[in-house]
């Protein structure tokens, strides 16, 4: 986001679908950990991470960058 009335800009947010074993799942709007140069893709895997810059103190990080997804 480059324009906002509620947070300093820029920031990244996105819908994250949390899957569960029964396949029902929950969608949450979540802060995304900013990476140099951006690079967020639709449908990419993410994982929870600490982020003192986000309102909640946490954000989702790009699992491809953290190495969790190979």
């Amino acid at each position: 986001m480059h324009v906002s009335s509620s947070r300093p800009t820029p920031y990244d947010i996105g819908y994250v679908d949390l899957s569960d074993p029964e396949g029902v799942g929950v969608r949450v709007l979540a802060p995304l950990l900013a990476h140099p140069g951006g690079g967020w893709q639709v449908d990419q895997p993410v994982e929870l991470a600490q982020d003192p810059d986000s309102p909640a103190g946490w954000a989702f990080a790009d699992s491809r960058r953290t190495g969790t997804v190979r």
Partner: peptide, 12 residues
């Protein structure tokens, strides 16, 4: 609204 608290605005 919990989404607004995360920075949701209509352009988002």
């Amino acid at each position: 609204d919990p989404e607004v608290q995360q920075g949701m605005v209509m352009p988002a």
